[in-house]
């Protein structure tokens, strides 16, 4: 269970560019929840993810994951329990290293004591191959290929696998299919659903697709001005139409909708 308790973050405090990115935000995420998050640009969605992942420390408030207060833990310590995918498929992998080496690094999160000087074992390699097979992209036969030569969709699928090869307590998906072509996006979305369902991973997903937001997962949040303005559970979502959501969205954004990234289509 993730508890975010009155977390605030101000960027450039005391300057003309001061921006309150998170404003005493409170959120409780139950185990096994799959939450989709909506909000216009600057609503604080990515800032919320950064605060959870530990990219920066919150100015005030606390973050508790499974009864452990992680408010002051640096990002690399939190990454042991929190997996994250970005919109940019290049962000999650090392391009000049092979698929096998990338997976080996991701697998370090399993943290089996001090084995810094051990090499990738046959057993590990077999495990990686099995995991790659499940992606159904033929990557299991290209273990020694440099990741930089893969396509965006393949890289994002690999990043997804790396983030979940040691099942995390929490998976943060920051519009992870937005930069992919429709076919690849569909594939990665499918894989995400499969992997999350298989591991019962607690998951937060940012999306700009209203339709997808209502269809995916079991709970939908809408953010504006660094806070949550709408929190729909599964029951409530069934009674909410995309039009209704769009109306609430406009209300929240307080401005006429100029955000053409909102997708109403399938």
């Amino acid at each position: 269970m993730l508890v975010i308790d009155h977390v605030s973050k101000v960027f450039n405090p005391g300057t003309i560019n001061e921006k309150k990115a998170l404003d005493k935000l409170c959120l409780t995420v139950n185990d096994g929840d799959f939450i989709t998050i909506l909000g216009s640009n600057g609503a604080g969605k990515s800032t919320l993810f950064n605060a959870i992942a530990g990219v920066f420390l919150a100015d005030e408030g606390k973050i508790v994951l499974d009864d452990v207060n992680i408010t002051f833990d640096p990002d690399y310590k939190r990454s042991k329990y929190i997996g994250r995918l970005f919109q940019d498929p290049l962000k999650g992998t090392a391009p000049h290293m092979t698929i096998r080496e990338n997976l080996a690094l991701a697998y370090l999160r399993a943290g089996r004591g001090f084995d810094s000087f051990s090499r990738i074992s046959k057993k590990d390699e077999e495990m990686f191959r099995e995991a790659l097979k499940k992606l159904d992209m033929g990557l299991e036969d290209r273990m020694h290929t440099q990741v930089g030569t893969l396509s965006g969709g393949q890289r994002q699928a690999l990043t997804l696998l790396m983030a979940t090869i040691v099942p995390p307590k929490l998976l943060l998906l920051d519009e992870h299919t937005a930069a992919l072509d429709p076919a690849a996006a569909e594939k990665v979305t499918q894989l995400t659903k499969e992997i999350v369902a298989r591991n019962h991973t607690t998951c937060l997903m940012i999306t700009h697709n209203l339709h997808q937001a209502l269809q995916t997962g079991n709970r939908t949040l809408m953010m504006a001005d660094g806070n949550i303005i709408l929190d729909l559970n599964d029951e409530e979502r069934k009674n909410t139409s995309v039009d209704e959501l769009l109306r609430r969205f406009k209300e929240g954004a307080k401005t006429e909708l100029s955000d053409d990234r909102i997708l109403l289509s399938e």
Binding site: D75, Y76, S79, K80, R84, K91, N102, L108
Partner: peptide
């Protein structure tokens, strides 16, 4: 970034 994401 990927290094910190691998808990190192």
């Amino acid at each position: 970034d990927m290094v910190s994401a691998s808990s190192i």
